[in-house]
């Protein structure tokens, strides 16, 4: 796959970082504003997909395998499960117990475990979508070769 023109590449350089930051904002404020782990994770994957589409094979030479993103994906699910299991250990013997202090509703650091769950799900969704896209792109490259 060929890259696009220099104008697209420069614009993508400027924009991709802002899209990444917006995804992080959506994930971290998931318990205060609309959004959350699912939406933010897909936006994070979208910033990488934008870079891959604009730069083509020149960018893809760096990441020839998709093993890195699958490691993050499995790590996200395992940490999510571990956080749920801590409720079984320390809380009231309930799976998914929210035993951290809740704090004041409306503050950034509040709601106990929910922001941590949001971060785990965000990492997991972003890595999943990126793995699927990388698998499609690498398959296409191997066919063309």
């Amino acid at each position: 796959m060929k890259g696009m023109t220099i104008i697209v590449k420069k614009t993508t350089q400027l924009i991709a970082g802002m899209i990444f930051l917006y995804g992080i904002y959506i994930i971290l404020h998931g318990h205060l504003t609309p959004g959350g782990g699912f939406a933010g994770g897909i936006i994070l994957a979208g910033s990488f997909i934008l870079l891959i589409l604009a730069y083509g094979s020149d960018f893809l030479i760096l990441v020839r395998k998709e093993s890195g993103s699958t490691i993050y994906e499995n790590l996200g699910v395992l940490v999510f499960l571990f956080l749920a299991l801590t409720g079984l250990l320390f809380g009231g013997r309930i799976f998914f117990a929210n035993w951290l202090p809740h704090g004041t509703p409306g503050e950034l650091i509040s709601a106990g475990f929910l922001p941590l769950y949001n971060i785990c799900v965000g990492i997991e969704v972003a890595a999943s979508i990126l793995s699927i896209f990388l698998a499609l792109i690498i398959f296409k490259e191997e066919i063309l070769k």
Binding site: G36, F80, F96, V121
Partner: peptide, 27 residues
Amino acid sequence: TGSVNLVTGVIFDFRGYDTLGEATVLV
């Protein structure tokens, strides 16, 4: 739940099992 966004409260607190299953389906 301590969460101002009610949908997030439902997803991760009241219905945490659903979200765990969804993550498994994604993997």
